[in-house]
């Protein structure tokens, strides 16, 4: 295929990325350099004052909590998704389709509704809480809602498909005879999985981590509905600045920081992969 044709073929996706990603992201970053306007918009001219305000305000605990929560969610999601993906490719075709549907169908329900469902499940009078109390798993006065645990639980629930689907895709490409080969060469079942299957699906693991981590970083609905005031994440702060304080430049500055925090590592990963790819070919 000629270079010209290649360029032509990538044009639609390039245009899409430009209109729906690059330009909006650029606008957000630009907004961070505007002075704030008391009426709720952005003022005229350019200034570094907003960034200074952001730096002065003590966001460190929130940033720390955001990163920690995202990391924990990612770790839990991938840990759960690994065995799920492994078994998905091994079960019979009919079962596999059923299970995949079960994973995907909840997605078709509105996200807010699902969060509210969790809210009512975890409520002291909710089904889940009541069942757990009756089963003697938790104490009668246990609070399952409005704490970090609830936030983590719903974060994991929401993002699990983002981990399962890329891992399933990777696991499907994995050649199962390799596990036989490892067993044949003296590896026990677990050692074969760790030594051959995990490296075999490592691209899926990386994709799953990025998907879950990036999506969790920007979360604000879940902490707001099932978390307490001490469980706020950076997303909540951005919402508050934008909709509560009507300070768009301040919110944009925070959003830009979050954007960079995601884009820079991803860019580095891509570069590293490319360098390694070249090395492997030569």
């Amino acid at each position: 295929m000629s270079r010209r044709r290649e360029t032509l073929l990538t044009l639609p996706s390039l245009a899409w990325m430009l209109v729906f990603f690059a330009i909006p992201a650029g606008l957000v970053v630009a907004m961070a350099f505007r002075p704030s306007d008391l009426r709720g918009g952005a003022g005229e001219g350019w200034t570094l004052e907003t960034l200074r305000t952001v730096a002065r305000a003590d966001y460190l605990p929130v940033v720390w909590r955001t990163v920690w929560m995202s990391a924990a969610t990612t770790a839990l999601c991938v840990t759960i998704a690994l065995p799920v993906a492994f078994h998905l490719v091994r079960v019979a075709e009919l079962w596999r389709r059923m299970l995949l549907l079960l994973i995907i169908v909840p997605f078709l329900t509105n996200f807010i509704i699902r969060v509210f469902a969790w809210k009512s499940l975890l409520h002291p009078e909710g089904l889940l809480t009541q069942a757990l109390v009756r089963g003697g798993v938790v104490a009668e006065d246990a609070l399952l809602l409005n704490n970090a645990g609830a936030v983590l639980l719903v974060l994991v629930y929401t993002h699990l498909p983002f981990a399962i689907l890329p891992l399933y895709a990777a696991a499907e490409k994995f050649e199962m005879p390799l596990l036989d080969a490892a067993r044949d060469l003296g590896a026990g079942p677990l050692r074969a999985l760790a030594g051959v299957w995990l490296p075999g699906v490592r691209r899926g693991i990386v994709s799953a981590c990025i998907m879950v981590f990036v999506c969790t970083l920007g979360q604000y609905v879940i902490p707001q509905f099932v978390g307490g005031p001490q469980d706020e994440m950076l997303g909540n702060k951005i919402t508050q600045r934008a909709f509560g304080d009507r300070n768009l430049p301040h919110a944009s500055a925070l959003a830009a920081c979050l954007l960079m925090a995601v884009l820079v590592p991803m860019l580095l990963t891509a570069l590293w992969r490319r360098a390694r790819g070249k090395e492997a070919v030569s």
Binding site: E175, L178, D180, A181, R183, D184, A187, G188, P199
Partner: peptide, 17 residues
């Protein structure tokens, strides 16, 4: 189990890691 047999296999399509 296969890992405890003094038997080794050359697989169809080789199954190299």
């Amino acid at each position: 189990p296969p890992e405890r047999r003094p038997v080794n296999t050359v697989f169809q399509n080789y199954a190299l890691f």
